[in-house]
Every structure is written in C-alpha cells, then in structure tokens.
Amino acid sequence: MTAPAHPRGPSRVGFWIGLTIGGAVMAYGVRGALDGLGTGNPTKLAVWVVGLDLAHDLVLAPIVVIVGLLLGRLLPVRLRGPVRTAAAMSGLVVLFSWPLIRAFGRRPGNSSTLPLNYAHSVAIVLAAIWLTAAIVVGIRWRRSSVAD
C-alpha cells in the first residue's frame, strides 16, 4: 500500500494566528450555546453536530465513493464522466428535496406552506439532469466520430 498524500504540516505563523483568533471565536460560540440553549440542550446540540459529521464520513461519503466505483466498473469509458456527474447531481437533488418530497413542514390550514407536489418537481429536475447528460454524451460521440 502506497502512503497516501498526507495532509501537509500547517504553516507556522498562520497556524498560530488562526488558532488564537479562531479559538477565541469558537469559545465565544460554545459559551453562547451553553448559556442560550437551556439545560441539557448543549449536549443534544453536540450530538447533532458530531452525528452529522459521522453520518457524512461513515455513511454518505463511502456510499458516494462505492457507487462511483461501481459505475466505473459497469460503464464504458465514454459514458463514465457524464453518468457519474448526472448520478451525483441526482443524489444532491434528492437529498436536498427530501424534506419537501415528504412534506414534513406542510401545515394543514395553510395552503402557502410547501405548495407544490415536490415529488413531481424532483422528477422534472432529474429528467432535465439526465437529458443534459445524454446530450453531452451525444455531442462527445459525434465529435469523436468526426475526428475519426
């Protein structure tokens, strides 16, 4: 196993200046959260912040990498880039829209809250993404066949 590109050592002066200022700002934020959130809630907040980080690092990022690897194995070289990009965009749109699709925030008696059928919206956006990918593949294919 080759050694991975290791994070470089920080720049010394910049690091200490950043740590001093940034550390003070962080301490201000931590104190504010401790004072402002009410008993027990700062612990819950820490669980959310760390939990989101772990959810990204242990679940979302590995899934993205492994799906990318699978697509790389399954697809011919010509399709890889556009399909991977379209897949990543689709994942982004679905992730971003999930609370809308599920309509968690729609309130009965208030027609202005989440007024659309967002599953329908997402379908339109995904169709646009994959249509764009298909066009990109088509253009590249034509260009390369013209070059041949």
């Binding site: 720049s11 950043g18 200022i21 700002v25 504010g32 959260a33 809630n41």
Partner: peptide, 26 residues
C-alpha cells in the same frame, strides 16, 4: 432545541473553526 439559537451559536463555532483552518492552510 430552538432553531434560531442553535443556528446562531453554531455559526460562531463554525466560523471560528474556519479561521483556524484558514490559518493552517494559508
């Protein structure tokens, strides 16, 4: 917990951590 308070104070924590990161990476 109450969104505005949490969003506000975590903003300070995040920006502080960002300043540390910028100093280290500049």
């Amino acid at each position: 917990f109450f969104f505005p308070i949490a969003h506000y104070w975590v903003a300070w924590i995040t920006i502080g951590a960002l300043v540390v990161h910028i100093g280290a990476k500049i």
